[in-house]
Amino acid sequence: MAKLELRHVIKRFGDVTVCDGIDLDVEAGQLVCLIGASGAGKSTLLRCINLLEPIDEGEIFLDGQDIAVPALDPQTVRARIGIVFQNFNLFPHMTALENAMLAPRRVRGLTRAALLPEVEALFDRFGLADRMQNYPDQLSGGQQQRVAIVRALAMRPEVMLFDEITSALDPQLVGEVLDVLLLLKQQGMTMVMATHEMGFARQAANKVCFLKDGKVIEEANPTRLFDHPQHSDTQAFLSRALK
């Protein structure tokens, strides 16, 4: 698995600076959680790492290679970094299986038959073996989100990004999706996750970063950040979030 380093990443939308000089290190196999209020820049940062948004300044190193070089073809980079969105964004006109096979077929150039064992194994591992032939609207939110994770994993990414993937789910469905992340962590996947699930961050993260106004205000291991926040902004946010 790969390691990810962000150096002074700046992203502006017009006059608004959404990411304001962010430095972040994610060691191989680590799970880093980004917390902070809505609009703090968590989602945008993830979209920048995946090159869905071009950054204005700074560097992003994936295993030592700067992937933020403007002339770089984003397609090859995106194939190495998976991202899962808050609203699943499954392709509604395809079955769960087709959703997961599309990109490997097109980008990795494999046939359906060659892919099937590998993709089936993924569905199986995440408890979706009997859902492969269903269309997204026939699945619950939790199932859809797990299919979205399988779809990203089918590209064999080196890093996975999760953008508030449980925020659109009914509370009783959150657990099944978070369990998937624990499984991935066991397997040594490098992961960055924007989340409001403080309990999960405390339990599973190697490092938690608190973002505010596009800046990393404080980062530490979860025990220290949640129990002994140093910065007054972190303290204020946590006292509201953990109420």
């Binding site: 869905l52 397609q75 194939a79 998976g82 991202i83 969105f85 599309l102 990109a103 990203a152 590209m155």
Partner: peptide, 21 residues
């Protein structure tokens, strides 16, 4: 537009995203 973003994030090209998604 999130459909296009999802397709691109998987490594599909603009053309593939248009055709398949």
């Amino acid at each position: 537009h999130s459909q296009r973003a999802a397709a691109l994030s998987l490594g599909l090209s603009e053309r593939q995203a248009m055709r398949d998604v």
